[in-house]
Design a protein around this nucleic acid. Structure first.
Length: 769
DNA sequence: AACTGTGGCTCAACGT
DNA sequence: ACGTTGAGCCACAGTT
């Protein structure tokens, strides 16, 4: 039993050799494949004439005529096999321009991926059984003036933790400090070497980090080269490689995949900030050890024994936390890697679009389907410019409602995609102009031939149903966990299929398919609304695939739920087989503010808040907490007076000046280059001010700022939290632009007359509380 | 000349 | 992916 961790290829004596890096129970194995050659396809205008034209290329090893499926039809193609991967990129452009060549296909697939597609190998298969050795590491860097610079600032410690139980911090200089995990070595070079040696000695299979792609590894590599050390972490002794991946970097370790937990966490969680501490709190519900990183250089230079001990402990806790996070999140990553058959290095850095595409590429190969080419940049931009009508949102009935029932469609979009056979190869087919699947758009879909993507999706859905059945019968908690991860991974992929059709860089992009699915979705939600109202319910809100209903004048919960079930029975009989409306929940009380903004109280008294400030990272804690308290007072007790009291108290506290900075901080993401803004908001100006003090920001960073007393406009007053002293905040801003708008919106929806509210608002604004 | 209200615009973040 | 809300900036018109 073995698991495939990585693949690469090398060239020896002009021969291409693919290397498969396996982990076995008792160690590692590198298998070499010598008989696989790169190839691509040419679509001929005239097969024989193109063959003739191809004779002049001596790099071509073999030309074979093949019949393959290209969207709606079968065509003849020439499979052109060459010697070296680089010959593909060299020849494809020349061949593309030949007179008798219409186009080249599958000519831009990296060689390793080509091999993965053709071999059908499954990366990470049996990963649980073989027992992978996983290590996490983290570095602390000397940072006397904020942002460290590898040109001058050394690494002062490296922390390490693995799932065999080894925990270490390697550092230097402070020989008098004694801690059981701490090893004081001679200098920076020695700690880097020790790290490399330990990874090798412990026979580590997977290295994890938190932001290792863009910080730890690039910094380490830079320092190592200055110190003339080879960063030979690869299983074959090779040096780590930094690859460009769009805007970011990827740190690749040969045969021993490096998995960066940071991008995974950004994908898996929805948080205000994504520092290690935030993720740790989110997963484990407890705080990890934290220090003020700004003080680190000072402590490092001191002889403060307690301060130094705390620093080493902090460093270790970073590695230990990263390991714990990895142990929690990696099983899903392994499973995604197995389903899409991408290497874990790739898969763990992929978005949902890329994952769907990987799966499709492999299935297309199995089914003799010729993959469409990726769009050019120009075409992708063109696709991005054109949009289509999406989902339908019902205008809510503003205010409080009691005894609310929620219905929603189980996997609406995947069900539609399957039921209506929605695929680029079945759209507006010529074979069934009359009897076809009709949609509210101008498009219809073939009834005779099952489409490629609907087929794959129904396989996935069937497999998920089987897994869920097994899960119900399984008792062993370990096996249950694996089955659950498996069904979860399939769900993620199935739910990405609709988005994939609208993804501008997709090979199987189809706006017609995407808009047909959306239009059918609208039709079904309209049908549901119509019928549920005929049944005596009243719709208070709905969005895409869900409807919230009440039964006017009915107070008996049992009766309401019985009616809801009778309605479901009726409508589900009318729906296509793959589609089902479900009973999703019962809520004793809820308040609806506007579309996409509402709050519900469930039967346990727990609030579910959607879209309101409470849920947004670009609002301060003080505003969010106050809004939350107001919602509680209103939904639990229907007591607006109590709500007003709460607000009064908060306003007073803000005025007094003793609200802590962390409750005033606002988090806003930078979504483009700092110079590209037409209208820079407070977060941009705060970032620009911080840059003058040596901070660096890039696209995607989340800025945490506070509106201080100094300045004229809000932007002017906004400053990065690190530079703000406790107490230095603009009380009027936090009252009038944060707390009051957030709570007044709730009170307004309660049906206070406009005048009443204005008075109420004004009173608050004037500070009469 | 300084203020106020409004609408257009940009930007961010959410829901599904 | 689209649908939707809302903050903040800015220019402009109409006041004060």
């Amino acid at each position: 039993m073995k698991t495939l961790l990585d693949i690469d290829y090398v060239t020896r004596d002009d021969k291409v050799i693919i290397r498969l890096f396996y982990k076995k129970k008792d160690g590692r194995e590198i298998e070499e494949v010598t008989d696989f050659k790169p190839y691509f396809y040419a679509v001929p205008v005239d097969t024989e004439k193109l063959k003739g034209e191809l004779k002049k290329f001596d790099k071509i090893l073999k030309i074979e005529k093949k019949r393959m499926v290209d969207m709606k039809k079968e065509i003849d193609v020439l499979k052109i096999t060459v010697k070296q991967p680089k010959d593909v990129s060299e020849l494809r452009d020349k061949i593309k321009n030949l007179e008798y060549c219409k186009e080249v296909r599958e000519a831009a697939i990296p060689f390793v991926e080509r091999y993965l597609i053709d071999s059908g190998l499954i990366p990470m298969e049996n990963s649980e059984e073989v027992g992978l050795r996983i290590a996490a590491f983290d570095m602390e860097v000397y940072n006397p003036r904020g942002e460290p610079n590898p040109e001058r600032d050394p690494i002062i410690m490296i922390s390490y933790a693995d799932n065999l139980g080894l925990k270490r911090v390697w550092s230097y200089k402070h020989e008098n400090i004694k801690l059981d995990f701490l090893e004081i070595l001679k200098d920076e070079s020695m700690i880097i070497k020790k790290f490399i040696d330990t990874v090798n000695e412990q026979k580590i299979d997977i290295i994890t980090s938190y932001n290792g792609d863009n910080f730890d590894f690039p910094y380490l590599k830079d320092r190592a080269s200055r110190l003339k050390i080879n960063l030979s972490l690869g299983i074959d002794g090779s040096v780590i490689k930094l690859e460009r991946r769009g805007m970011n970097l990827g740190a690749r370790v040969r045969g021993r995949p490096h998995i960066d937990m940071y991008p995974i966490c950004r994908q898996v969680f929805n948080l205000s900030r994504y520092q290690l501490e935030d993720i740790y709190l989110e997963i484990f519900g407890r705080k990890k050890l934290d220090i003020d990183v700004g003080e680190m250089a000072k402590v490092w230079n001191s002889e403060d024994i307690d301060g130094l001990k705390k620093l080493f402990e902090y460093s270790l806790s970073d590695a230990v936390s990263t390991l714990e996070i990895a142990m929690t999140l990696l099983p899903l990553q392994y499973e995604l890697s197995r389903i899409t058959r991408d290497l874990i290095y790739e898969s763990s850095r992929s978005g949902s679009g890329q994952r769907v595409e990987s799966l499709l590429m492999r299935k297309a190969h199995e089914m003799n389907i010729l993959a469409p080419n990726k769009p050019s940049d120009r075409l992708a931009e063109e696709r991005q410019r054109t949009s289509y009508t999406g989902a339908y949102v019902v205008e809510p009935i503003k205010g409080i409602h009691d005894n609310i029932v929620l219905f929603d469609f189980r996997s609406l979009y995947p069900s539609i995609l399957i039921s209506y056979n929605i695929d680029p190869s079945t759209i507006d087919c010529e074979c069934c102009p009359e009897d076809n699947y009709k949609t509210p758009t101008q498009h219809y879909f073939c009834k005779k031939k099952k489409g490629f993507i609907p087929r794959i999706l129904s396989e996935l859905v069937t497999k998920r149903i089987e897994i869920k059945k097994k899960l119900r019968e399984e008792k062993d908690p370990e096996k249950r966990r694996l089955l659950d991860v498996e069904q979860h991974a399939i769900k993620l992929l199935a739910n990405s299929a609709y988005g994939y059709y609208a993804f501008a860089r997709a090979r199987w992009y189809s706006k017609g398919c995407a808009e047909s699915i959306a239009a059918l979705g609208r039709e079904y939600i309209h049908k549901t609304i119509r019928e549920v109202e005929n049944f005596g319910f009243k719709v208070v809100y709905g969005d895409t695939d869900s409807v919230y209903v009440i039964k006017p004048k009915e107070v008996d919960k049992g009766k309401i739920i019985d009616d809801a079930n009778s309605f479901l029975k009726k409508i589900n009989e009318e729906l296509p087989e793959a589609m089902e409306l479900e009973f999703e929940g019962f809520y004793p009380r809820g308040i609806f503010i506007t579309k996409k903004r509402y709050a519900l109280m469930d039967e346990k008294g727990i609030l579910i808040v959607k879209g309101l400030e409470t849920r947004r990272r670009d609002w301060s804690n003080i505003a969010k907490e106050t809004q939350n308290k107001v919602l509680n007072a209103i939904l639990h007790e229907k007591n607006p007076e109590k709500a007003a009291e709460i607000v009064k108290g908060v306003v007073k506290r803000i005025r007094k000046g003793d609200v802590a900075l962390r409750d005033l901080a606002i988090n806003t993401q930078i979504t483009k280059g700092l110079g590209e803004y037409v209208q820079p908001g407070p977060h941009i100006l705060a970032a620009k001010k911080a840059m003058k003090r040596g901070y660096e920001f890039k696209r995607g960073d989340i800025i945490t700022y506070v509106v201080t007393k100094k300045g004229v406009s809000i932007s002017d007053k906004a400053r990065i939290i690190d530079f703000v002293e406790e107490g230095d905040y603009d009380a009027e801003y936090y009252i009038n632009n944060q707390v009051l708008p957030a709570v007044l919106r709730i009170l307004e929806a309660l049906g206070y007359s406009e005048d009443e509210l204005k008075g109420f608002g004004k009173q608050m604004r004037l500070g009469s509380f």
